[in-house]
Amino acid sequence: MPTYILRQVLGVLQTLLLSSIISFAVLRLLPGDPARLIVGPLAGQAALDAVREQLGLNDPVIVQYFDYVGGFLTGNWGYSYSNGADVTAVLAARLPATIELALYAFLFALVVAIVVATIASYRRGIVGALAKFFSLIGLGTPPFWLALVLLLVFSVNLKVLPGPSGRLTSFLQPPPTITGLYTVDALLSGNVVAFSDALAHLVLPAIALAVIPCAFLTRLLTANLEDAARGAFVTVVRSKGVSRWSTHTRHVLHNALLPTVSSSGVVLAALITGSVLVEEIFDWPGVGQVLVQGIQRQDFAVVQTFILLSAVIYVLVNLLVDVVVGFVDPRLRLQRAGS
């Protein structure tokens, strides 16, 4: 076990090192002068040179790379001129909104996927075919288009859910910050009005964000359930007199869930990408919106940090999942080490 973890950690370090080189190289290729963007088009040469010096743009490339990695590791992620604040502060202020949205989207995707996959693998035929059909549609649906359709149906036509107005209706006070998640904070402070309003604002963006992870998980879990249902333990459990349905939900499902957990990284990547595509549509004040606005205003510090950060989070989550899954089920550990 310790050597297994050590090998995984070493591999991850190599990957992260290369990832940082890739993102640094892309940063260096970006057109335009970052110093010019900060001082503005009217500033004189002296001011420009001062900022260039301050940013270390006159140093050799190697020094710049180490500055970049050092800055990234110490949480010094540069200055976002379009927000007028440090990138670290901007992202920290907006992270709770994205976490709340992604959390609800993930829970929705997970519950729907488990229910649909369990039923679809229990009763193949029409139900199974329908489930397959829906996951086919889900995997082909761009989240930003689904967001548009949901807004048209539920906000513009039926008028049952709020339109693109952020996390709360503007005349409501946000609940006192405890966790940063409006729904949780509102409940903790007993503010039912804020809670239901925040929840109503969450429904559409969460569904739009959930569609791809949900379709992916349904497909994967159905396949894993069908694999697990062929196991020898199924015959043993059935011969003890357990009904087919409870064999399926109590034994087969448990065995199918663990290999599904291994692909958490894919789900996480889909949620990060989705938040970039969906937040701006709903005026959701999260990190995805900051990225899109950063792109439009050529604020490269934001773009740069976001992209490397997403890779680091992805790699670390994969490492964590590998270690945990390997700990729980040694068979999977051997499989991974062999591949």
Partner: peptide, 16 residues
């Protein structure tokens, strides 16, 4: 290490 980046975000960075 290329696969560590979400596809859309890396494509976005290279495009920019």
């Amino acid at each position: 290490s290329v696969l560590a980046f979400p596809q859309l975000l890396l494509a976005l960075a290279v495009t920019m």
